[in-house]
Computed example of a mutant assay.
Amino acid sequence: MTVSRDRGTGGLLLVHAHPDDETITTGGTIARYRRLGVPVTVVTCTLGEEGEVLGEQWAGLTADRADQLGGFRIGELTSALAELDAGPPYFLGGAGRWRDSGMAGTPAAEHPRAFVASGAEAVRALTGVILELRPRVVVTYDPHGGYGHPDHIHANRVTTEAVEAAAETGWDTPKFYWTVTDADILSDHLRALARRTVDGLPGALPPGWRLPAENELACVPGNSVTTTIDVADALPEKRAALRAHATQLTVAPSGREFALTNMIAQPVLPEEHYILVRGRAWAGGPDGREDDLFAGLV
């Protein structure tokens, strides 16, 4: 399966496990680089069939009922990517080739199409995408998969192996990053949210939401982050893309936070964070980190 020619070569390639991951962790980055005219391709590895849903409106779609959630989420992803100006979805191996594996130890992990069992076939498929698009920058999760979802962990493995395989057969990706969240910045925003909530100030948590417990949200030590992308100007697009994933999450009226089906508040940060794992870092930001994923590239 080839990639649509209108995506362009030499740009940014992001590999995500499920619809909504692209927006939650990298939506501001996608919108920022599209504003700059950089070609962006988002590769999604599954349809997110095993996701939980918000409310009874979508309950009949879930895997234990009609099992139609994956198809519905294609539409959500299409809308979200349109808000980010990132083109139509591209599913690794074709839509439905690999299925959401669910959390570790669940029956979903034993499904014959579970992404965690995709092995060499998924690596070959992604290697083909890399060789065709020749991205200057590739992004996926860290080896822990952010919050530990098996599909996120496997996406890291598949992407790492595909980047290496492509380097041996025609395209050596100049820069390869993991998407992460800086623990220090996350803590700053959560403290501000807690103060607003306790004092009943504008921007307090909506009813039914709760603050995350300590270390409940995925993050990494600030000193491990190599790159900070300022996405403040792209937050309108990111918020719109978040709202497009209506079965999965809710954006607070203030636009400052969102919550998944667990109703734990997560800040919509004005910056997105990365760790460079292949290529040379070019510090240029005020904090001594890179401020551009393409820094140092011609």
Rank of each mutant, 00 (worst) to 15 (best):
M1P: 07
T2G: 07
T2S: 14
S4H: 11
G10F: 02
G10Q: 01
L14D: 04
D21E: 01
T23A: 14
T26P: 08
T26W: 13
T26M: 11
G28C: 09
T29L: 03
V38H: 09
V40H: 11
V40G: 04
V40R: 09
V43Y: 14
E50Q: 13
L54M: 05
G55F: 13
E56G: 14
W58N: 07
G60R: 04
A66M: 04
A66N: 08
G70A: 09
F72V: 05
R73S: 03
L77Q: 15
L77V: 07
G87H: 10
P88C: 01
P89V: 09
Y90P: 00
D100H: 01
S101Y: 01
G102Q: 06
M103K: 06
P107W: 02
A117I: 02
S118G: 12
A122Y: 03
R124T: 10
R124Q: 15
L126C: 07
T127I: 01
T127D: 04
I130W: 05
E132I: 07
R136I: 00
V137A: 01
V138I: 14
D142N: 15
H144V: 09
G145Y: 03
G148H: 04
D151F: 03
H154E: 13
N156R: 04
V158T: 13
A162W: 04
A162I: 06
A162M: 14
E168M: 13
T169Q: 11
W171H: 15
D172I: 11
T173Y: 08
T173W: 00
K175C: 07
K175F: 05
F176W: 14
F176H: 12
Y177Q: 13
Y177C: 07
Y177P: 09
T179H: 01
T181A: 08
D184H: 10
L186S: 02
D188P: 05
L190H: 02
L190E: 06
R191C: 02
A194P: 05
A194S: 09
R196S: 08
D199E: 15
G203I: 11
L205V: 06
L205I: 03
L211M: 15
P212T: 06
E216H: 11
E216T: 10
V220S: 04
V220E: 09
N223K: 01
T226G: 15
T228S: 13
D230P: 06
D233F: 03
D233K: 05
P236E: 09
K238V: 02
K238H: 07
R239Y: 14
A240S: 10
L242T: 06
R243V: 05
A244P: 12
A244N: 06
A246T: 12
T247N: 09
L249N: 12
P253S: 14
G255H: 03
R256W: 14
E257F: 06
A259F: 02
L260I: 00
T261L: 11
M263A: 15
V268W: 04
H273D: 07
Y274D: 03
L276S: 10
R278S: 12
R280V: 13
R280P: 00
R280S: 02
W282C: 15
G285I: 14
D287N: 05
G288A: 00
E290S: 14
E290I: 09
D291H: 15
A295M: 10
G296T: 12
